[in-house]
Design a protein around this nucleic acid. Sequence first.
RNA 1: GUGGGUAUAGCUCAGUCCGGUUAGAGCGCCAGGUUGUGGCCCUGGAGGUCGGGGGUUCAAGUCCCCUUACUCACCCCA
Length: 423
Amino acid sequence: MPVFQTSPGTRDIMPPEAARWRRFSDVFSTVVETAGYSCIIPPMFEDIGVFRRLGEATDVVTKEMYDFEDKGGRHVALRPEQTASVCRAFAQHRPPTPWKVWYSGPNFRYEKAQAGRYRQFDQVGIEVLGTDDPDIDVEVIFLGWDFYRRLGLSNVTLMLNSLGDTDDRQRYVDALATHFNDQKTTLSEEAQRTLEKNPLRVLDSKREQDKAAIDGAPLLKDFLGDDARVHFERVCEGLRELEVPFVVNDRLVRGLDYYRRTTFEFVSTALESSQNAVGGGGRYDGLVEELGGPPTHGIGFALGVDRTLLACDAEGVFGSSSDSVDVFVVDVVDGRHARGLSHDLRRHGFSADRAFDGRSMKSQMKAADRSGAKVAVIVGQDEVSAGTCVVRRLDSSDQVVIPRADLVDYLGSIGLKPSTETA
RNA sequence: GUGGGUAUAGCUCAGUCCGGUUAGAGCGCCAGGUUGUGGCCCUGGAGGUCGGGGGUUCAAGUCCCCUUACUCACCCCA
C-alpha cells in the first residue's frame, strides 16, 4: 500500500473517466447557455454564516458542515452546495434581474461515504433570481429534464410538489406536528427525534414502522393558499404543454429549509441503491433576503454528477470514450525525427504523440496502436536518407511512402483535419 | 453517527474454514520469437513488507485483539 491515499470520501477521477466528466459538463453548459444562462464560479469556501441559512434544523448544517477556522480566526466552511453562494453573490453584487446563472463544481459534506455519496461531490446547476413568474419554474424544470434526455437517460422520473408560501408552510408544519405528536408512540425513535427538529421531514422516513402515521398525515395541498395554488397549477400546465411527464408527490419535502412553493426532484428508476435522487431543486423566495439582500424570488436546481453518471452506467448510455490522437510518430533512428515531426504536426493543428526512451520498432508500433491514432508516421534510416516518411493507416495496415515535405498536406488529404490553424 | 461485509501483484480475484517447503492465476506491463511494422499466437521477465500494529504458536496470508481504509445498508442527501 502506498503511503498516501485519497482522504475518506474523495477519489481521483482518472482518465478516461475524467474526459467523460468534461463531456458531461459540456453537454450541460450547451443546454443551459442556449436558454440564456451565464456561468458563475463562486468560491469553494465562505463564511459559515452563509450556509447556516440553509436551515438550523437540517443535517447539512448541523452535522455535515466541512468547517474550520482559518489563520485569521475566521470561521469558514467548504460549500455544501452552491445555491447559498449564488444568493450571497447576488446580494453582494446586485446584478440586473432576472439573473440567470449556471455553475459546475465540487461541494463538500462531512458524512460517511457510500455508493453515490462522497464528501467531495460534484454538482451542476442553475439558479434564476428576481422573478416569480411560473414560466421560469417551467423553464428551469424543463432544462433539467432536457439535459437528462440529451445524455440519453430514459428512466428518470420527475417528481413535483408545492410547499406553499411561508404562511401555508407554517400552518402545515403545525398541523403535521399535532398529527405526529398524537401518534408519537407509534413512531420510530429516529422519527421522534426528527419530529422535534422538523416535523416536515418525518414524511421522508422510509421506515416501515412510520408508514401508518405518515399515510394518515394531513396533505400539503389542502394547506396551499390561493396564490401558491394558482402558481402551482400554472407550473403544471406549462410542463404539460412542453410534454414533460411528471408525478405530483405530496410527500416530496426536500432537505433544506429554504424551499417555498415549487419543489421537484429527479429520481432514477435505474438505480437500485437508496441514492437514487440524481437531482433536485425548487423555489427559495426569501433566501437572498436572509443573506442580507433585498427581497428576491429565486428558483434553481442542482444535479449530482456522480449519481447521474451512475444512472448512465445503469442504463448503458453516455459511456466513457478514451482519449486518442490523430498521429503517432515512430522514429527508429534516434528520436530526433520524432521530436521534429511531432512538433511540426502539432503546429499544423494535428494532435500527435510519440514514443520515448529509444524503444524498439515493435514497441513503438504497439504504443501507436494503443494511442488510438489513426495513422502512424514511421521514420527509419532509409527514410531519413531519402527525405521521406512512411504513413501507415493503423486500421487497414495500408501504407505509403511520401516526401517528408508533403506530410501535412497528405494527412489533410486522407481526411485528418487540423483542429486549429496555429501558424 | 449506527450496523454488516471486505482488505493477497498495476487491475480482477484464488488460497484463509482445517496454520506447515520458495504465496498463485487471468488481464495489463516489459522483452524476445520477427535486427523495418501494431492487433492474433508462442516463450520469457519484472512486479507482493498478503492494509497497518500487537498477540497466540516451533511455525501465521491463514487463529485472536486493536486500528485504518474501502464497501453495503440505516440516517440523510446530489
